[in-house]
Design a protein around this nucleic acid. Structure first.
Length: 322
DNA sequence: AACGGCATCAACCGCTCGGCT
DNA sequence: AAGCCGAGCGGTTGATGCCGT
């Protein structure tokens, strides 16, 4: 990080912790009269013994006159769930779709209520997919074998590009590549796999979801609005795209699309279940992409034998790099 | 009444981003 | 181009309240 001094209240004798009513009043009075201007300069000007950052937070999260307080409505809940499916933990982006609600409030509401609610519904709050059970984990070796090692190397490269997609162009290039004939024709999974048809469908649908979620994610990120066609209906690049709500159409079911970088398809749950209860949700902050998770696992000596065992069982002849 | 565990949420901390010099 | 700085974001913490025993 570039030379940025922390807001160290202790060192400067600045107050920390809960705000008193008098402090609130000083802040409100000052901002109503002068606007907040420079947050750093504000506390001194307003006669507050706080750092500017603390003032900004207090104002934005609590004192702002347009803040809506009280319980979240059903519609707001659905909106949050669907936006989270599309945007991941982008609390400020989610908050921008909910007038009067702050990112902090939404984040707290998510962590304390919605996460649990989804879990109770059997939905992984990180991926927004139905939670994966041990049967799937047991089939992992076959899935791995089917995908072929070479495909994984290539997918890894692609997804790293997707994961680092802060600019639209490389990401869209990767998506176009995935969607295009080169990828689909040259990487026929079925040819070298012993997958059952439904497993193949699942694997291929992951690619489709990857396109859809990435596309939707970018659209939302750049426009903060779902795509709409001329009839004002939601428009998606493919049929399984994220289910973004409108004010008139609250979605009833959370979208089954992983969107945030840590929610890449295929195996987030499987990879992170190495030493924990497989029914537990994956940690949203631990790994930014599925393939980084793979890397983490492969780096871990303790898990090395575990994965070697799985790989050995996964038809070694299919692992030759073509 | 006292205690412990859990839930909630305001506030903080560390970091990134983008504008400016 | 490099560094500084203000603002904002997301994760985490800690105080508080509630509930069950």
């Amino acid at each position: 990080m570039m030379g940025r001094l922390p807001c160290n209240n202790d060192e400067h004798g600045l107050k920390k912790g809960p705000w008193m009513a008098e402090e609130d009043q000083l802040l409100i009075d000052y901002i109503q009269r002068h606007g907040h201007g420079s947050w750093r300069a504000l506390p001194k000007l307003a006669g507050l013994n706080r750092c500017g950052k603390s003032c900004r937070l207090r104002w934005n999260n609590y004192l702002r006159p347009d803040i809506k307080r009280g319980r979240f409505s059903e519609e707001e809940e659905q909106t949050i769930i669907n936006l989270h499916a599309a945007l991941g933990n982008k609390w400020s982006a989610i908050a921008s779709h909910l007038p009067g609600r702050t990112d902090n409030e939404i984040k707290n509401f998510w962590n304390t209520h919605l996460k649990k609610k989804l879990l109770q519904m059997g939905i992984d709050p990180v991926t927004h997919l139905p939670r994966i059970d041990l049967d799937i984990l047991a089939n992992l070796p076959r899935l791995l074998a089917a995908a072929k090692f070479s495909n994984f190397i290539m997918m890894n490269n692609i997804i790293q590009v997707l994961g680092s997609g802060t600019t639209p162009s490389p990401t869209m290039e990767a998506i176009n590549f995935l969607a295009g004939p080169t990828f689909r024709e040259n990487h026929q999974l079925q040819a070298n796999s012993n997958l059952a048809p439904h497993e193949l469908v699942q694997l291929q649908s992951n690619f489709v979801n990857l396109e859809a979620s990435q596309h939707q994610s970018e659209v939302s990120e750049y426009h903060h609005q779902p795509l709409k066609d001329s009839n004002n209906d939601l428009q998606f690049p493919c049929s399984s795209a994220a289910n973004i709500p409108t004010s008139t159409q609250p979605a009833q079911v959370p979208a089954l699309v992983p969107a945030s970088p840590e929610c890449r398809p295929i195996a987030v749950n499987q990879t992170e279940n190495k030493n924990i209860n497989p029914n537990d949700i994956s940690n949203p902050s631990s790994t930014s992409t599925t393939f980084e998770a793979w890397g983490d696992l492969m780096d871990d000596e303790a898990s090395d034998a575990y994965w070697r065992d799985i790989i050995d069982k996964a038809s070694p002849q299919t692992w030759s790099i073509s």
